[in-house]
Write a protein that binds this DNA or RNA. Structure first.
Lengths: 223, 223
DNA sequence: ACCTGAACACCGTTCAAGT
DNA sequence: ACCTGAACACCGTTCAAGT
């Protein structure tokens, strides 16, 4: 068990990219995206800030590696379902839930295109579309919609997490969003007003899955 | 016609939020997201950096106002089509194209949830879903999928624009992406390898619209 | 009321110097 | 080969002082 003091003492074991990424993830999870600085990271690793650059090119590489680590772990744990529809839902839900726990992953996914994490999601979806019977020429488009929808939700949830102070509870947060929606002119925004009433009792995860199901229905309808 | 010298001369007309937002948009469009600093903005407006804070609370408000301005202008110009499907496609394509020209708008849309720009897109889509005959309880989910898909693509395109150096042409960029995809193990990423071949000749806008059509098909199939 | 610009409290990144 | 930490070149934001 690591004591509190050890952190400020001289480190005895060697630095490595893995240990740096691990420490970065801890900071991101505990104190949020803004708390990850090279100074804070160096302090936690009991080293100089310049030492980190021996193992990691820059902050971008660090964030990419951290996100890849989380996503790889998540997708590795997802059950290999025989039903491709269930498999796609499991992948999507896995990404959704992991971003609920690590919101900064959502930010990173929508900021850095074509990183390994994204390709893993893409591959997981694409392989199952073939099993679903989607013709080969249609698979690229179909996998793209699903991926981009997942990335869109990921980005929004990450942004919400940045906005939501930790002490405010969820229902108060939803109520404040609904209130902001209804501030707009009802004549100009009738749909927004109609839907604002549904915000407080709506379930993010359910709505996310409803979206996945709608897209899957669309993919299957044009088969 | 504004001469080059006038910019560094003492400004004679008063500052205003509109003029600041306008100048910010010019900087974002010309020199990219990273070039927008309060110092650069102050220099362009021939004032002190502190003066901007009299009209704008902080950088976030500035970026939100800039994105709102661009989106409002785009959606205002979109034709009010009688066919709700065409209307939704026109809104989606309008947002897609405006982000192609102003990539920073994509970044802003995926960073800042529930800003006016997003609600405008949401309202435009939602109103047409009703016209499409989507039952009221299903409209919230349906509008959400479409919006989140649009936001996902917006974020990715903005990220690509940040990555793409201006001198590199599009086909070379696509080839480099395809090359990065095929670097991964084909046994582990069969789908990615299969699809990589389609990247060079694929059309972003067509694929985006194909996604919109798939989602619309899904929405209509569950009616 | 509005503007000026120096000052403050940060950043990411580099690099001479150490072991 | 790897680490240290001061230094550099920036940021956003504040605020006393001006008009």
């Amino acid at each position: 068990m690591r004591t509190k003091n050890q952190r400020t003492e001289r480190r005895t074991d060697a630095l490595s990219k893995e240990r740096i990424v691990e420490a970065a993830i801890e900071i991101l999870d505990t104190d949020g995206e803004n708390a990850l600085t090279f100074r804070a990271l160096a302090a936690r690793l009991a080293t100089g800030s310049g030492a980190i650059y021996w193992h990691v090119a820059d902050k971008n590489e660090l964030l990419t590696a951290a996100a890849n680590h989380i996503i790889a772990r998540t997708l590795g744990a997802s059950v290999n379902d025989a039903d491709p529809r269930k498999g796609i839902r499991a992948i999507a839900l896995g990404v959704f839930n992991v971003i609920d726990i690590h919101p900064w992953v959502g930010t990173q996914l929508s900021r850095e295109p074509w990183q390994t994490a994204m390709l893993q999601i893409f591959e997981g979806i694409g392989g199952r579309l073939r099993a679903l019977g989607v013709p080969e020429q249609a698979q690229f488009d179909a996998a793209s919609v699903l991926l981009n929808y997942i990335l869109g939700v990921a980005g929004q949830n990450a942004a919400n997490a940045r906005l939501l102070p930790r002490e405010v509870d969820r229902s108060a947060f939803l109520a404040s969003i609904a209130a902001r929606w209804t501030q707009h002119d009802p004549a100009e925004y009738p749909f927004v007003h109609q839907v604002a009433a549904q915000i407080p009792e709506h379930d993010d995860q359910e709505q996310f899955l409803a979206g996945i199901n709608l897209i899957l229905a669309g993919i299957e309808s044009t088969r």
